[in-house]
Design a protein around this nucleic acid. Sequence first.
DNA 1: CTCGTGACTTACG
DNA 2: ACGTAAGCCACGA
Length: 103
Amino acid sequence: MMNKLFSEKVYRIIRQIPSGKVSTYGLVARKLNSKAYRAVGTACRKNPNAPEVPCHRVVNSNGLVGNYSGDRGIKGKIVLLEKEGVKVRNNRILDFNKVLHRF
DNA sequence: CTCGTGACTTACG
DNA sequence: ACGTAAGCCACGA
């Protein structure tokens, strides 16, 4: 198990997001006491722990779903979120404030 | 070490 | 609300 430090920390935070909830890259970065918003996304993009880490529950700060490197890209991410109970409309999270998980 | 890239964020017009 | 610009950080070549 290789330690990528930052990535590992990111994965640990994301793993804490319960089903039906979402979080933002900014919040995760903030939790790490860093401003590495992009690094968080980069870590997820590699995503070596696909099913272990629910990266699909991480969205942009403004409520946009953002991007995804899954089977069907952004579309697949939306499908997953909908399955979890998160309503998505035109790449935007509905009731963003309600489904937003706070650490 | 330097450079380019990216699943980002905030600010401004 | 929308597009652009600048700032930000980790990682691979």
